[in-house]
Write a protein that binds this DNA or RNA. Sequence first.
DNA 1: TTTTGAGTTGTTCGA
DNA 2: GTCGAACAACTCAAA
Length: 472
Amino acid sequence: MTTLVWFRNDLRISDHPALAEAARRGPVVPVFVLDDKDPWPPGGASKWWLHHSLTALKAGLGGLILRRGDAREIIIELAEETKAGAVYWNRAYEPHSVARDTAIKAALGEAGMQARSFKANVLHEPWELETGAGGPFKVYTPFWRAAKTRAVEPPLSAPELQMTVPAGIGDNLEDWALLPSGPGWAAGWREHWTPGEAGAQARLAAFLQEDLKGYGTLRDRPDLPNVSRLSPHLHFGEISPRQIWAQTRFAADQDASLEKDAQKFLGEVGWREFSTHLLFHFPTLPDQNWRPTFDAFPWRDNPAALAAWQKGRTGYPMVDAGLRELWHTGSMHNRVRMVAASFLIKHLRLHWKHGEMWFWDTLLDADLANNAAGWQWVAGSGADAAPYFRIFNPVTQGRKFDPEGAYVRRWCPELTSLPTEFIHAPFDAPAEVLAAAGVVLGETYPEPLVEHGAARAAALKGYEAVKASAAG
DNA sequence: TTTTGAGTTGTTCGA
DNA sequence: GTCGAACAACTCAAA
């Protein structure tokens, strides 16, 4: 029997349970739908990745039907057009996806077609893990403790496929215009990234071989390569968490000295699982403070400050380097994300949603659950979030995690000649040091947007309203 | 049901 | 320079 396989954020062929089960039954009709009804449609950077990932998937499969519109209508129509007796897909967990897929499953059933969804994009379903009292977890550590004790299914290999791709019923990818229209923005991304399943597998292999050792501590260093850089691949499902789990476990079992680093790395996969768990159980996570008391925080409205932050012109090199890295590469090192996010929320007192939206548009790995959970974590308004009084000092963070200033010099080249002593705080450098380095504050590099001590005090004062709201 | 221990990633201050 | 305490209680998870 012919089965329609609906690809979504699972743009791979191996460890793809929906595809594997469909292939076992007979001919497969593969389809990808760009869903116009998605309240969080892919941002600019994500669209670039999607274009290349779909190209890779289509080549790997030997064909792929592309359709754009309301997925609820398109899937039913296509199933009828292609005379498929069944529609299979792998589950997604965003609120919109859950509602849409539930409706489609019901509609297919009414139309006499089989609809089946599969677990593919998480280690454990959000409803498979619950506390002793029977609810969702709200704290990471017990969540991950519970997750780790459950068995993880071994990944599936790529199936033998009998493909059926009718001509003339799909769109041309080029017509979707997913690539940025203006010159420049995505120009350098190909040097940094290889979208597609092969690129994802190569990235994991290289990471495990070269950079897992020392990951536990070196992952905090934006000037060093010891991070996996798998997040966009994971978001688009070019690689599955089960594959990452299995290969990382294998590497650590081969070499016991890697065990601690492997645990730390898998713990990061655990954060992805935790964010998915939270979004599934708390669907307003991307839109509202998870702790309603934070509604009382006196956010400022300051478009000029927001624009300066977005452009990487805050006057704090660690923050500016991060935002410029984001613009130029479509990504930002995890440590710097925290520093940059803390700066927006606490130093500038701009609502975390501004940051969430900017990241959504500019990050190649933009993921609704991770993005929302991350921003609310920094703001202090989220589940298991950082306490409000934890305000990152961008200078201290820079000196601690970019000790030679190599990361800042890479992304803020106008500061290159500053001595390392002042690379994270040019505003503290004596006039003759600035002159010798060719730095003119306010001209070649911005004056600091705010003074750290005063901004910190203002943020703490702002949180008094949150405390008062909690008490009242 | 009550109690108890614990909780990703920090900064500042003062001894 | 180094170290511990304060920051602020609060919520969660499990015994």
